[in-house]
Computed example of a mutant assay.
Amino acid sequence: MMCLKTMMVCSLRQQILPILGLLLIIECIISLKLLELRVPSHVPLGTRAELSCSWQLGEHDVLYSVKWYKDGREFFRHVPRDLEPRRKFPLPGVDVETFDTSGGNVTLSPAVLETGGRYRCEVSGERPLFPTVSDHADMLVVVLPDHGPMISGFRSRYRTGDRVQVNCTSGRSRPATQLAWYINGEPAPASAVQSAIDKKTEDLETTSMALDFVVQETDFKKNGLKIKCLATLAPVYWRSNEESALKEKAISNQLLRSSLEDVKVTRADRVLANSAEFTNSWRHVVLLLCSMPNLFLRGLVWFPFFLQEI
């Protein structure tokens, strides 16, 4: 009987121990949690990227290491129990400039094109199980445009029925900027916007997009028309350019006929005025001659004799 009890206890222990061990492993794995990983998705060329990794240890956990990787290659580690707790490893385009005591926050040197890639933070607990958690995020190094978007082809005045044909061109960047058109502050209808054209030069891209529509009476707001081109490289770049035009009033046919009649009347008045001036001039000449009758008659009498003497 005693042997039977002993065998039952031994069998029970053999069943319980694996379960306890499994529970212990699960507890260790669950106790260490990676709370948040912060890696900027877009970093302008020449700026410093800040990486952040936060975690939570269990009640009985002890931190063993924090390691940072870029494209699968380690470039920084923090092991509290080592003689040299924090170490940097050479990697093209990646150099840790500053870091905190936990190793969870690092700042990289000014970004170059090779800095872009996939970054991973890995946190491990102490022996015997060395529970490990990790997460990753991608970073893209961008070259911001050297100038804002430029609008060409826009006039200072428009009438209802006129056709607006303008173009917007961004500065050179990497990657290409996204362009968008607005009319009076509202997104332009898709029918008026043509497809963007990207032109690549020396690894940098220039984007252009045309806007083409016929002006309607409703397009004028307070006798004005406004268009805007917005260039973006989210979430690090927003620049826009806006142009304004005045409403030009159309001349009606009736007004045009009235203007022509006024011109005709004015010309007729000038002809009559000139004729009157001519008549008045001759009147003055006649009156002058009449005022000197003796002189005029003497001239008529002596004039033939004067001719004979000659």
Rank of each mutant, 00 (worst) to 15 (best):
241 N>K: 04
18 P>A: 10
211 L>K: 01
239 R>I: 00
128 P>K: 06
163 R>A: 06
200 K>H: 08
141 V>Y: 02
148 G>S: 01
279 T>S: 07
37 L>V: 15
274 N>V: 12
87 R>V: 13
114 E>Q: 15
221 K>N: 09
228 K>Y: 00
219 D>W: 02
14 Q>A: 15
52 S>A: 11
64 Y>G: 05
206 T>I: 07
217 E>G: 06
250 A>Y: 01
204 L>H: 05
279 T>W: 06
92 P>K: 12
178 Q>P: 00
187 P>G: 06
282 W>S: 04
7 M>N: 10
228 K>N: 00
96 V>R: 09
102 S>E: 15
31 S>N: 01
200 K>E: 14
260 L>V: 11
101 T>I: 06
5 K>R: 11
98 T>I: 03
286 V>E: 08
20 L>I: 08
78 H>Y: 08
2 M>W: 01
134 S>V: 05
122 E>M: 09
207 T>A: 02
256 L>V: 12
85 P>V: 14
196 A>L: 07
236 V>D: 02
97 E>H: 07
199 K>N: 12
142 V>S: 01
59 E>S: 10
297 L>P: 02
108 L>V: 11
182 Y>S: 04
266 T>V: 01
148 G>K: 00
34 L>H: 13
93 G>Y: 03
276 A>C: 06
2 M>Y: 03
281 S>M: 03
283 R>T: 08
160 T>K: 07
43 V>D: 08
281 S>R: 09
192 A>E: 10
33 K>N: 13
307 L>A: 10
93 G>N: 07
84 E>C: 05
192 A>L: 06
53 C>Y: 13
190 A>K: 12
53 C>I: 14
58 G>K: 12
151 I>E: 01
155 R>W: 09
45 L>H: 03
185 G>Q: 01
298 R>D: 04
47 T>Y: 02
73 R>E: 13
46 G>F: 15
307 L>Y: 11
167 N>K: 12
295 L>G: 07
39 V>I: 15
33 K>V: 14
242 E>T: 15
292 M>D: 07
112 V>N: 10
20 L>H: 08
264 K>M: 10
289 L>H: 07
171 G>R: 14
173 S>V: 01
259 S>M: 14
36 E>V: 03
127 R>G: 09
161 G>Y: 02
245 A>M: 14
275 S>I: 08
181 W>E: 00
127 R>P: 03
